[in-house]
């Protein structure tokens, strides 16, 4: 098993972790964290799988480079929307998550 494959499998684990966090955490800032971890998992899978033979592959590397920059743009926009919600409702969670109070809070 090559080390690139180890990173690809880690990527799969990170993706799943982030997905569970995205669904379970009611706080929007935590959802954004989980979303970023999910993205990092996808990037690791892309590059890890392409390089599992051992040779570096510039094509997925360039795609991931683009992806990282787009991810921070999405994060910033999500944070702006979450802040807007905080200013309007006084809390940073979606209105549907009513039972969220007993969960981890600030």
């Amino acid at each position: 098993m090559s080390s690139a494959l180890v990173y690809a499998l880690t990527g799969a684990a990170l993706f799943v972790l982030g997905m569970a966090g995205l669904i379970l955490q009611p706080h929007l800032l935590r959802k954004i964290l989980a979303f970023n971890i999910m993205g990092s998992g996808i990037f690791l899978m892309l590059v890890g799988v392409a390089q599992r033979a051992g040779t570096p592959d510039p094509v997925p590397q360039a795609m991931v480079l683009t992806g990282i920059v787009v991810a921070i743009a999405a994060t910033a926009l999500a944070l702006a929307l979450a802040r807007q919600l905080l200013d309007m409702n006084g809390e940073m969670r979606l209105p549907e998550e009513k039972t969220g109070k007993d969960r981890l809070d600030v």
Binding site: L9, A13, F15, V16, M19, G48, V49, T55
Partner: peptide, 23 residues
């Protein structure tokens, strides 16, 4: 999520060799 993760890991290990060599 864990079931999905296991399936994903199994798929990664089971992938065929790419038909096009991009590098």
């Amino acid at each position: 999520a864990s079931a999905f993760g296991l399936a994903l890991g199994w798929l990664i290990l089971d992938l065929p060799v790419a038909a096009v060599r991009l590098p």
